[in-house]
């Protein structure tokens, strides 16, 4: 039997993190394999965004380690990471092009012709080429989300950290995005995605159900559904199933 060796893109090892007195992660560990779309599903306050921020280096664990591409020094690999936050943190008075151009420059695309080529490419990917000269403030929320995504795709990172990337997108655009995400993983890129919606989560290669900073289940969406023992179950049913199992464990 052929053994599959997974290369680990991000290794989170026994981290502890708290906001003030509120504990978010207690001895939390997770490995994110290369070339997969790795989904993180959980309710409000389960720790999804905090985990994203920890991996992106915006927060530091109180103890434990996070290594990305084999190094604990995130600064040395930042150009290989793209972090898209939950909010559309863009410069609203600047144009679509200027925003992407700025982040391209920050990610190290200093050669102007190369940068322009990369921006045009990514504008086509998110379907906003025609709106490239429009100010961000004139775009709809969904369009701003697309610009936000373009800003982290422009430098072709190997690891994409996407916090709720499809919120506010039209269903057809959402489908296009997931097709594009699949292309990225086929190219060997790693995607770490948080989501609230089951429709999105089902597209991931692998899923984690997160509750109160703990992993309550981890597997492919199909296996997680199968684990419920119900042939007609949905991913939502699966989430509720594992949630209830965890509640029962808590009671015990």
């Amino acid at each position: 039997m052929e053994e599959v060796i997974n290369i680990i893109t991000a290794n989170i090892h026994k981290i502890n993190f708290n906001y003030g007195k509120r504990k978010i992660f207690d001895n939390f560990s997770l490995q994110i394999p290369e070339g997969l779309s790795f989904g993180l599903l959980g309710g409000n306050g389960s720790g999804k965004t905090t985990l994203m921020k920890l991996i992106a280096g915006l927060e530091k664990p109180k103890s434990g380690t996070i290594s990305i591409f084999g190094t604990d020094s995130i600064h040395s690999v930042r150009s290989k990471i793209g972090y898209m936050p939950q909010q559309n943190t863009l410069y609203s008075d600047l144009s679509v092009f200027s925003n992407i151009d700025f982040f391209a420059c920050m990610y190290g695309l200093h050669n102007k012709p190369d940068r322009k080529k990369a921006i045009d490419e990514v504008l086509n990917t998110v379907g906003l080429y025609e709106r490239k000269n429009d100010a961000i403030s004139t775009l709809s929320g969904g369009m701003q989300r697309r610009v936000s995504l373009a800003c982290v795709l422009v430098h072709k990172p190997d690891l994409l950290l996407l916090d709720e990337p499809t919120v506010g997108l039209d269903p057809d655009v959402r489908v296009i995005f997931w097709e594009y995400f699949k292309e990225l993983t086929d190219q060997g890129k790693t995607l770490f995605i948080t989501s609230h919606t089951m429709d999105d989560a089902v597209h991931c290669d692998r899923l984690i159900f997160l509750k109160n900073g703990n992993i309550i289940a981890e597997n492919s969406p199909q296996e997680l559904i199968k684990a419920t023992g119900n042939s007609t179950a949905t991913l939502e049913d699966s989430f509720l199933y594992f949630n209830s199992l965890d509640n029962n464990n808590d009671l015990c």
Partner: peptide
């Protein structure tokens, strides 16, 4: 306050 500084800090800057 808008979070743009945080976003900037995730780049190699």
């Amino acid at each position: 306050a808008l979070g743009t500084l945080d976003r900037l800090l995730t780049t190699p800057v």
